[in-house]
Lab assay of single mutants.
Amino acid sequence: EIRVRVEKDPELGFSISGGVGGRGNPFRPDDDGIFVTRVQPEGPASKLLQPGDKIIQANGYSFINIEHGQAVSLLKTFQNTVELIIVREV
């Protein structure tokens, strides 16, 4: 597990896919977790996150067994800083 802090400027600078009942993700199709799919170059998350990172927690909210829409809404709700716990396959 890796813990990262992303400062919104003005957005977080990454996209996610997956989630329960979602269209899945390109990295682990059998896993309904939330995965980072795109990281904006030079964006707030560019040095912190990589495509394929699985987000398991954001600001204390579990991202395990969460629906895609709910994950997106939560990330939009947070002000300024988001603390993520991620799992990265090496």
Rank of each mutant, 00 (worst) to 15 (best):
E1R: 07
E1K: 15
E1V: 06
I2M: 08
I2E: 03
I2Y: 09
I2L: 12
I2W: 03
I2H: 07
R3V: 12
R3A: 08
R3D: 03
R3G: 04
V4N: 04
V4M: 05
V4W: 02
V4D: 03
R5Y: 08
R5S: 14
R5V: 13
R5Q: 10
V6A: 02
V6Y: 06
V6G: 00
E7W: 09
K8R: 12
K8P: 09
K8L: 13
K8V: 11
D9L: 05
D9C: 10
P10S: 06
P10Y: 14
P10M: 04
P10D: 03
E11W: 07
E11S: 11
E11T: 07
E11R: 08
L12H: 10
L12A: 05
L12I: 10
G13A: 04
G13R: 02
G13M: 03
G13L: 02
F14G: 01
F14E: 03
F14N: 03
F14M: 01
F14T: 00
S15D: 12
S15P: 00
S15K: 09
I16T: 05
I16L: 05
I16P: 00
I16C: 06
I16E: 04
S17P: 03
S17G: 13
G18R: 04
G18W: 00
G18Q: 03
G18C: 05
G18A: 04
G19W: 05
G19Y: 04
G19D: 04
V20D: 05
V20K: 13
V20G: 06
V20Q: 11
V20Y: 11
G21L: 08
G21C: 07
G21N: 15
G21P: 06
G21D: 06
G22H: 08
G22N: 12
R23D: 15
R23I: 14
R23L: 11
R23C: 15
G24F: 07
G24K: 12
G24R: 11
G24C: 07
N25Q: 11
N25A: 07
N25L: 07
N25P: 11
N25D: 13
N25C: 08
P26N: 10
P26A: 08
P26I: 11
F27K: 08
F27A: 08
F27G: 07
F27P: 11
F27S: 07
R28A: 14
R28L: 12
R28I: 15
R28E: 10
P29T: 13
P29W: 08
P29A: 14
D30I: 07
D30W: 08
D30K: 15
D30H: 13
D31F: 03
D31Y: 03
D31G: 06
D31I: 05
D31A: 05
D31K: 06
D32G: 08
D32Q: 15
D32P: 13
D32K: 15
D32V: 13
G33N: 03
G33S: 09
G33K: 03
G33T: 03
G33Y: 03
I34V: 07
I34E: 02
I34D: 02
I34T: 03
I34N: 04
I34F: 03
F35E: 03
F35A: 00
F35I: 08
F35C: 03
F35T: 03
F35Q: 03
F35P: 02
F35Y: 14
F35G: 01
V36W: 04
V36Y: 01
V36P: 00
V36H: 00
V36L: 02
V36D: 00
V36K: 01
T37S: 11
T37D: 14
T37N: 13
T37Y: 11
R38P: 00
V39C: 05
V39F: 00
V39K: 00
V39S: 00
Q40N: 14
Q40I: 10
P41I: 08
P41Y: 05
P41K: 11
P41W: 06
E42S: 15
E42T: 10
E42M: 10
E42K: 09
E42G: 15
E42W: 10
E42R: 11
G43A: 09
P44K: 07
P44Q: 06
P44V: 05
P44I: 04
A45I: 08
A45L: 02
A45N: 06
A45M: 03
S46F: 12
S46H: 15
S46T: 07
S46V: 13
S46A: 15
K47M: 12
K47Y: 09
K47P: 09
L48V: 06
L49W: 00
L49Q: 03
L49A: 00
L49G: 02
L49N: 00
L49H: 03
Q50M: 14
Q50G: 03
Q50P: 02
Q50A: 10
Q50V: 14
P51S: 08
P51G: 05
G52A: 05
G52F: 05
G52R: 04
D53K: 00
D53C: 01
D53Y: 02
K54C: 05
K54N: 03
I55V: 07
I55P: 01
I55N: 01
I55Q: 02
I55W: 01
I55M: 02
I56T: 07
I56Y: 02
I56G: 00
Q57H: 09
A58N: 02
A58T: 02
N59Q: 07
N59C: 06
N59E: 07
N59V: 01
N59H: 02
N59R: 01
N59S: 04
G60I: 02
G60S: 10
G60E: 13
G60T: 06
Y61V: 15
Y61M: 15
Y61T: 13
Y61F: 13
Y61N: 10
Y61K: 12
S62L: 04
F63A: 01
F63W: 05
F63D: 00
I64W: 11
I64K: 13
I64N: 10
I64A: 15
I64R: 12
I64P: 01
N65H: 10
N65M: 05
N65S: 10
I66P: 01
I66F: 05
I66M: 11
I66H: 01
E67M: 09
E67S: 15
H68P: 06
H68W: 15
H68T: 08
G69Q: 14
G69D: 15
Q70C: 11
Q70W: 07
Q70D: 12
Q70S: 11
A71W: 00
A71S: 02
A71R: 00
A71Y: 01
A71G: 04
V72L: 14
V72N: 12
V72I: 11
S73T: 15
S73G: 14
S73N: 14
L74G: 01
L74T: 07
L75C: 02
L75I: 06
L75T: 01
L75H: 02
K76P: 01
T77D: 09
T77W: 07
T77F: 05
F78R: 07
F78S: 09
F78Q: 08
F78N: 09
Q79T: 13
Q79A: 12
Q79H: 14
N80Q: 15
N80I: 06
T81I: 10
T81H: 12
T81L: 06
T81S: 13
T81V: 12
T81P: 13
V82P: 01
V82L: 09
V82C: 07
V82F: 05
E83A: 04
E83D: 14
E83T: 08
E83P: 00
L84C: 04
L84Y: 10
L84T: 01
L84I: 07
L84K: 01
I85A: 10
I85E: 15
I85W: 09
I86C: 08
I86S: 02
I86W: 02
I86K: 03
V87R: 13
V87C: 14
V87W: 12
R88K: 03
R88G: 03
R88D: 04
R88T: 00
E89P: 09
E89W: 12
E89C: 06
V90S: 13
V90F: 13
V90N: 15
V90H: 15
